[in-house]
């Protein structure tokens, strides 16, 4: 069990001449809760998007439970993964987006049932049970038949969390999940994430601007700057006694803004 849940090995991502991530090395242990903070453009969202295979990586390898994600070992060599391999490994990962990305033409319940039925091949009845349990858990038991357009931002985001959980992922990615919400709705979403962290065996990786939440919730905080991890450590240390000048500057700027 010494194998980390997720491992980034010298991962580099470029957009044309711009290097967004520069030889990233990062291990995330099983059940670890890791927060990623940093100024915009520091590459923090890209980390999640690469892990979800929404972005190609230019160099390096990402491993999930020791298995390469976008590559496949064939005759001892790493080659680009086949679709089948990609889909199998990707099944271990779930993601919640900043802008929810709920399916607008499906009810909350249908949103949570679609993938379990069509991807995992669950019988409809079982998928419905699972979906309603999860919607209950995120506090939306009374909104199952509602369409996204009839829900508030916070409710949409909670449906999105239930939808991702319905696939029983081992790793959950949260990409600035409260950034598109009105301030008074942030709390309800964070409460759900808190509950998830304490009640489920989940590895969680989140990009966030909620410093208070990151401090209280995570086991480790990574501060990204210019495509690299500038500093990382336990929240008490990173927030309480940052070692790097850039971290101090960033934190004081963020805290000042409120």
């Amino acid at each position: 069990m010494s194998e980390p849940m997720v491992r980034f090995e010298n991962v580099t991502k470029r957009y044309g001449a711009l290097t967004v991530l520069d030889e990233l090395n990062l291990d995330i242990e099983r059940n670890e809760k890791v927060s990623i903070i940093g100024p915009s453009g520091s590459g923090k969202t890209t980390v999640l998007r690469m892990l979800m295979t929404l972005e190609r990586i230019n160099e390096g390898v990402i491993r999930v439970e020791g298995e390469p994600l976008t590559h496949e070992e064939r005759n001892g060599k790493l080659v680009t993964a086949s679709d089948r391999h990609l889909r199998r490994v990707r099944g271990k990962i779930g993601m919640v987006f900043q802008h929810f990305n709920l399916f607008p033409h499906m009810t909350a319940l249908q949103n949570c049932m679609e993938a379990p039925v069509s991807v995992l091949g669950l019988p409809k009845k079982e998928a419905e049970e699972r979906a309603s349990e999860l919607l209950e858990m995120v506090g939306l038991g009374d909104k199952m038949k509602h369409f996204p357009i009839q829900l508030s931002g916070g409710q949409k985001q909670r449906v999105a969390i239930a939808r991702a959980l319905a696939m029983r992922p081992k790793v959950m990615l949260f990409d600035e999940v409260t950034s598109a919400l009105d301030p008074e709705l942030v709390g309800e979403v964070l409460n759900v994430i808190r509950k998830l962290g304490s009640e489920h065996d989940l590895t969680m990786l989140m990009v966030t601007h909620q410093m208070g939440f990151a401090k209280e919730f995570s086991d480790r905080v990574c501060f990204f700057y210019g495509g690299k991890i500038a500093e990382q450590g336990p929240p008490e240390q990173l927030f309480g006694d940052p070692q790097e000048e850039r971290t101090r500057q960033f934190l004081s700027a963020v805290l000042e803004a409120g």
Partner: peptide, 12 residues
Amino acid sequence: GQWEACIALNLS
């Protein structure tokens, strides 16, 4: 975002 959600949910 709809395409991305489909990838994240592993839909074929």
